[in-house]
Amino acid sequence: MAVPPTRTGIARQRLHVLARAIAAIIGGYVVTALAVACLARLLPMRPAEASIAATLASFAIYAGIIVAIFWAKSMLRVCMGLGSALLLLGAALYLSILIGGRL
């Protein structure tokens, strides 16, 4: 509160918050979904068990990602983190389906 915020300062701040919120809510959900799908396929259990175990962990994963996104130093880091997670998990899921589809 030391420096009175300017109009453009407030607008920039709001845009920043919006970007983080979108990254956290939507980006976080997509990464969570991929992580859960990967866990369900890769956990060394029966498929039904692995599916349930992955689902049970999903909300903790999601919450962790949201917290991490709001914690991150810059939006650039958020984008890099989300991007690499998407690539890594997407590739793992793709390979797992390609090699030995449980479907």
Binding site: V36, A40, P47, A48, A54, S58, L93
Partner: peptide, 21 residues
């Protein structure tokens, strides 16, 4: 957390979808 789990089939169907048609 357990509240989310009770409706997880609707919120997080991906774990099941990864293994079952």
């Amino acid at each position: 957390y357990t509240g989310l789990v009770t409706l997880a089939a609707q919120y997080m169907p991906w774990g099941v979808m990864a293994n079952y048609a």
